[in-house]
Amino acid sequence: MNFPLEQPLFQFFYWLVNTAGVGSAVVGLLIGAAVTTFALTLRWIASAKDMGQESYPYPPKH
């Protein structure tokens, strides 16, 4: 059984896993995405405006 490396798809996969720098790019992308998500989340939380309802005291009274 020969590995069907001549298939373009597998060639792409091969290129993907075996090219110096692609790994870094993938890791960078992953980390970049995470950092961005985290930053955006923090901004999202911080940007919540007081809706005039119950505020700071916690927990909200039920």
């Binding site: 896993v17 090219t19 870094s24």
Partner: peptide, 21 residues
């Protein structure tokens, strides 16, 4: 160099990715 020439095939790269994340 791991950030310049990282290869996905290397398990160490997965570890670096996973650890950082």
């Amino acid at each position: 160099n791991t950030l310049l020439y990282g290869r996905l095939q290397a398990p160490l790269m997965w570890d670096i990715a996973s650890l950082t994340l």
